[in-house]
Design a binder for these strands. Structure first.
Lengths: 63, 63
DNA sequence: ACATAATGTCATGTTTACTTTACATTGTGA
DNA sequence: TCACAATGTAAAGTAAACATGACATTATGT
């Protein structure tokens, strides 16, 4: 599973830490997901999509 | 998090067990998700959306 | 060059998605 | 009614998402 989190974050010009606060997770979680270390939970994915005003499929790519 | 899995399953007229086999998870996992016992992983959500030819947001509802 | 912000990374622990096994209940067709 | 398919449920274990704390590396501005 890949993602374009870094791009969406760049669009809003916010840091990993700022996004982490908005999502109510830690900076390490954002960093790990962004670097593909593991996938987000569906709840976090929904939260991100809502924050970036897009769909989950716009951020995360399955296969 | 709510979902309309039961409806999508009804549309395709398949059992929990058949869906489980398609998704490569157990029947209990499908049952638990359908009954709201816990949320699917984002991978499983993607797999379901692909199977039902819709978006994740068409099946799962956040808040 | 230096300070500091941002990001990368690692170890340890908790929570939750998911498995396995097993049994109970409900629906359905003959 | 009776067999059996489908669904509900529960205990115990595994795997992966996420937390916490700590430290290292890489930007970036002055």
């Amino acid at each position: 599973m890949k993602n374009s989190l870094k791009v969406w974050r760049a669009k809003k010009d916010i840091t990993q830490e700022q996004l982490a606060m908005e999502m109510e997770v830690t900076r390490q979680t954002i960093n790990a997901i962004e670097r593909g270390k593991y996938d987000p939970s569906i709840k976090l994915a929904f939260k991100m999509a809502r924050f970036f005003e897009c769909s989950i499929e716009d951020i995360f790519f399955y296969e």
